[in-house]
Design a protein around this nucleic acid. Structure first.
Lengths: 151, 151
DNA sequence: GAACAAAATTAGAATAATTCTATTTATTTC
DNA sequence: GAAATAAATAGAATTATTCTAATTTTGTTC
């Protein structure tokens, strides 16, 4: 039995997802759509576990294994990027434009740092002859701008 | 009882370690010395587990927890860097000069990609105003130079 | 639209990485 | 050399991720 569940993914993104999946002979299942929706909804670099908690509000029976499956598919489709910081669980990011990440030691927050074409190609040129990269990950660890505190 | 074990760390590195530890009021224990020695010996970006196996040849009773403790200390002392690739265990690298990492999809090998001052400061300038980073991690995922294969 | 094949999901177990806790051992300081 | 502190230890605990085998869903063919 197929229940209709609103996985509330805006038209543009839904089409982007459908298209990217179709190119690879994969199906836009409810689970994949919903996982993608949740990642787009709150762009705070959630872990698989965070995503599981959020998706369960819409698809209460979804398992963590499926979350990982869906995420792997989305990464394959280049709709989502993985972020590897510290000895911490992998985080996921739907920002498809070239960008780096900044991880604040104080707040734990992760910020996107956008990279224009010039910067991106500068980085690509770091590679010695014979090496080609399909994925570049750049991350900073430090302190972000001082936020107001009660002092 | 103190057994003398040769942890075979060359003079220069031994001094570097001693100095870095002293600055932070930490002690150059046999375990720390040996872990550092092993990391310097074979610069293949080993995991904590790899390091455990290697150190045990010299200090057979050392525990994995101590390996992690020592590694954390060495990272704190800026003698060792952590490398975070994929959803894989953290690797450790004794290259103290600025460099990026290249991870080969085919062989799984990790290469250091050295960064001169110019490149490093170019990267630092990516950060928006108000952000300061003490650690920068840049990694590439792709294919390395083709090695000879039996075809 | 029934029947089959292929793809995807599922629960839960298994594995593996890392951290924690409580105890023991070693080192420094007085 | 005793007290105080730091570090190491074993092993348990926790957590992240993967795997397995069974079930459900989807797509295709007749």
């Amino acid at each position: 039995m197929k229940e209709e569940v609103n996985t509330s993914l805006p038209e543009t993104e839904r089409n982007r997802l459908k298209h990217a999946l179709k190119c690879r002979n994969l199906r836009p299942t409810r689970q994949r759509t919903c996982v993608y929706g949740v990642i787009l909804e709150k762009r705070d670099h959630p872990t698989a576990d965070d995503i599981h908690l959020r998706v369960r509000k819409k698809l209460p029976s979804i398992s963590l294994a499926t979350i990982y499956n869906c995420l792997d598919t989305l990464v394959e489709c280049e709709l989502v990027k993985q972020v590897h910081l510290d000895r911490a669980p992998t985080r996921f990011c739907p920002n498809r434009t070239p960008h780096a990440h900044f991880h604040c030691r104080d707040s734990g927050k992760v910020y996107d740092v956008s990279l224009d074409d010039e910067r991106l190609s500068a980085i690509e040129q770091f590679l010695p002859h014979g090496f080609t990269a399909d994925t570049i990950e750049l991350s900073f660890l430090g302190r972000g701008p001082v936020t107001n505190t009660i002092s």
